[in-house]
Write a protein that binds this DNA or RNA. Structure first.
Length: 425
RNA sequence: GGAGAGAUGGCCGAGUCGGUCGAAGGCGCUCGCCUGCUAAGCGAGUAUACGCCUUUAAAGCGUAUCGAGGGUUCGAAUCCCUCUCUCUCCGCCA
């Protein structure tokens, strides 16, 4: 959510910045007009309230001295009270309308975010490693996995439906090994605190991080409750500090969290129908940071490197691109995508998305901190990134480490997590 | 699921028959004083948001907030209703 005061004072800056995101930037004029009307009503209301408070104090003082209050005094105040009630209702309408509109306006792109129209304009900022050479035609992960009987998609469909998967044997263990490897790396080497949050959250938390109200159709809702299945650990973990005032000594706060994630994938019918790439349920290790505004973009660079380290240690080739303004997510000011090389698909696929949300989520969720120098309370900046999407990492390991005989070599760093196993198949 | 108790400031905790209650008291914290040092002691301060004023900020003025929403009343932390959450006991359960 943008700061209404900033919008009020800098309408042309907002207009310009939002325009770089492309598409419609509806409602800015309406927003300003609502804001004006709201403040006008508010002033009238507060004047009446002040009047009532003054009179109330007089009456109290008189009663204390056992003096009588003339009845006509009350009659006039009754009218003031009625006016207050009317004005309160009016104010509430304007506030609700303004809030609703403000909730649908995306974050402003950061100053260093490249300007562009679509994913085609995303610059690649670096590449790590090299594409592995195969003396044979590399297969896709689902073919390898089914042949080795470590993935069973048919039975997953029977149990639940499309876009679910069943890992078996060494496959299940490999997924678990990846989770543990990532958690251990980020907690022991990168200073993150591990958290294991609820997998269902209420609508307030969903609103805090920006999934609601605009992206309801992407979520699974639990029937007859106010609860939603989380689409990413970002939601519960960012909301850990919702409504709190932190101290600046404790910043940056860094959490790492493994959770399953649930996404309806509405609108992606027919895309990635085979394999683990696009699932309704998938595992992810998520990195979340709360930072001071002046360090947040540096913290983004650090977080990105923390995520990259997973692939470096697995020795898998990848590249990093920076999302341009036209491709940027709703809540984000700046986002890097890590794209891993999948030889079976002969493509780079997104395996992590690392974003700085500036104060956009913090304002919605009410996450603040007190500066020790000025004693002032300010909104923190929130950041997060996958570190990494586990299912897609599984795909990357399987496709990059596949052998001519259909077996898979287990990357060295994972072997301790696999009970010393060096190869599947 | 059944029965009961409760929700007040960073924390603990008081609020009498509704009336200067943003809220006593304590702890914590900050600043100052005092003291060889430390501790103790003494003094002062210590919420957030919004609006107005203002070039900005500060100051100032005003308004709101005692779980949430609604009601009664000139006036509600205090009375009434609804909801949410927490705790205790019983049942069930991993």
């Amino acid at each position: 959510m943008l700061d209404i005061k900033f919008v009020r004072d800098n309408p042309e800056t907002i207009q310009q910045k939002l325009a770089t995101r492309g598409g419609e930037i509806a409602g800015l004029d309406e927003l300003l007009s609502l804001d004006g009307q709201r403040r006008e009503v508010l002033q009238r209301l507060e004047k009446q309230r002040a009047e009532r408070n003054r009179a109330s104090d007089e009456i109290a003082a008189a009663k204390k001295q056992k003096q009588d209050v003339p009845p006509e005094r009350f009659a006039g105040l009754k009218q003031v009270s009625n006016d207050i009630k009317t004005l309160e209702e009016e104010l509430k309408k304007f506030e609700a309308a303004q809030e609703a509109l403000l909730m649908t306006i995306p974050n402003l792109p950061g100053d260093t975010t490249p300007v562009g129209n679509s994913a085609d304009d995303n610059p690649v900022v670096r590449t790590w490693g090299e594409k592995p050479q195969f003396a044979f035609e590399p297969k896709q992960h689902f073919d390898i996995g089914e042949k080795l009987d470590i993935l069973d998609f048919e039975r997953a469909v029977k149990i639940t439906g499309a876009r679910f998967s069943l890992y078996k044997g060494a496959g299940a263990r490999l997924e678990r090994a990846l989770i543990n490897f990532m958690l251990d790396l980020h907690t022991t080497q990168h200073g993150y605190t591990e958290v294991l949050p609820p997998l269902m959250v209420n609508s307030q938390s969903m609103t805090g991080t920006g999934q609601l109200p605009k992206f309801k159709e992407d979520l699974f809702k639990v029937e007859n409750t106010d609860y939603y299945l989380i689409p990413t650990a970002e939601v519960p973990v960012t909301n850990i500090h919702a409504g709190e005032i932190l101290t600046d000594e404790e910043l940056p706060v860094k959490y790492v969290s493994y959770t399953p994630c649930f996404r309806s994938e509405a609108g992606s019918y027919g895309k990635d129908t085979r394999g683990l790439i696009r699932q309704h349920q998938f595992n992810k290790v998520e990195l979340v940071k709360f930072a001071k505004p002046e360090t947040s973009y540096d913290e983004l660079e650090a977080l990105l490197l923390n995520a990259e380290e997973v692939l470096r240690r697995l020795n898998i080739h990848y590249r990093v691109s920076c999302l341009c303004t036209g491709d940027l997510g709703f809540s984000s000011a700046k986002t890097y995508d890590i794209e891993v090389w999948l030889p079976g698909q002969n493509l780079y696929r997104e395996i992590s998305s690392c974003s700085c949300f500036t104060d956009f989520q913090a304002r919605r969720a009410g996450i603040r901190y007190r500066r020790s120098d000025t004693k002032k309370v300010e909104f923190v900046h929130t950041l997060n990134g996958s570190g990494l999407a586990v299912g897609r990492t599984f795909v990357a390991v399987v496709e990059n480490y596949q052998q001519p005989d259909g077996s898979i070599i287990i990357p060295e760093v994972l072997q301790p997590y696999m009970g010393g196993l060096k190869k599947i198949g």
